[in-house]
Design a protein around this nucleic acid. Structure first.
Lengths: 208, 208
DNA sequence: GTCTATAGACCGATAGAC
DNA sequence: GTCTATCGGTCTATAGAC
């Protein structure tokens, strides 16, 4: 390991990769929800499209790397385990719709078995599910009691049920052993119970 | 309205459209999770790609029509209101991953404001949310009490939470007024409560 | 090793023949 | 109105300049 600075055989390449990654990140962040071509990214770093692709092997590989870089940055900021107790991370996403769009696009495309991100997403979901399951089983950290039933209302429950249905399809495409119908029926029942309990606790809706 | 059969000025066009729609449906149903090009569909009906697009105006419009046709068929089979109480519909999806993939792809692409399916999806979510909210507020139909807490376990809760997070991003892209962080935090708390209650009811997990 | 130039394949969209 | 021929754009692959 040289201590002389960026002089090793791969130093330039690594630096270039990093530069391209940042350019791509910026391009998507600015893109609103429109598409980004490899050419767009290449222009930002003063290369041709082929030059950019040289460092990643292909377009989809590049995009996968962008997402992975984002994951890594988030993990660095928030730590690995905390996601469950820090939904503020999601609020941060709201500043960069382009990157949200990239995530949604890629996770759809990754359903294809031959897609470069296929394994990445498969493993990501496995790890995430395991981690969430453990955290949920352990319960909330001390001094963080779940709020009562504040805000548990039909409109919210409807959003959740629809979102879970859509999102579960993505997981199912990568792991067909998931029983979507049963999973969602159970969620519906749990939401109904929560709604009933919230109504019983705070029965002053519109009649007061 | 002519009673003489397919002889009106648009009869041929309507028939062609129908034929193309069916070919596209079949192509996606067979496609596993791989992509389908307009060319693929065109070959099935013995046209060039441009010939197919002529009837729909563009590729994305064609795909939107495919999805709308599928929605209409489902509504015909199950009725409009029943979706909540008939998650079996989801089990049916499991037979045609290609169409599930199409849905996921399109709903991602439709986030773009200029996308032909943008309004379709925006309205679809609005209608669906309203319908679900009403149904959830009304509670289960008579003779259909929610099951106790059977199957409420951490692995299931993890799948739901991740799915809801992913799916909510899609809704948010179309309606940025949604507060993702708050919505998901609430769901987490409700799931935690459900898990706690299930554990209290049936405390024989692994210790018996 | 890094990158450009170039050529090929595929795709979707536009202009115009029938 | 229906459809084909053709065009421009994008990604990939390869050869070779630096």
């Amino acid at each position: 390991m040289s201590t002389r600075g960026p002089r090793g055989p791969y130093a330039k390449s690594a630096a270039r990769r990093q530069l391209i990654l940042e350019a791509a990140l910026a391009a998507y962040a600015e893109a609103g929800s429109r598409g980004v071509s490899v050419r767009d990214i290449a222009e930002r770093v003063g290369l041709t499209d082929a030059g950019v692709l040289h460092h990643f092997g292909g377009r989809e590989e590049l995009l996968t790397a962008v997402l992975a870089a984002r994951d890594a940055a988030a993990a660095r900021r928030y730590g690995e385990e905390a996601a469950l107790w820090r939904p503020e991370m999601l609020a941060e996403n709201a500043d960069t719709p382009g990157l949200v769009k990239l995530f949604v696009d890629l996770s759809a495309a990754a359903a294809e078995e031959a897609h470069p991100a296929h394994e990445y997403f498969t493993e990501r979901y496995q790890v995430l599910r395991q981690r969430y399951a453990n955290a949920l089983a352990a319960g909330p950290p001390a001094g963080r009691p779940p709020e009562p039933d504040a805000g548990v209302e039909p409109e919210w429950a409807a959003r959740m049920l629809i979102a879970a249905t859509d999102g579960l399809q993505q997981q199912w495409l990568l792991d067909p052993s998931i029983d979507m119908a049963e999973d969602i029926a159970r969620l519906r029942d749990v939401l109904l119970e929560a709604l009933a309990r919230a109504a019983a606790t705070e029965p002053r809706e519109g009649s007061d």
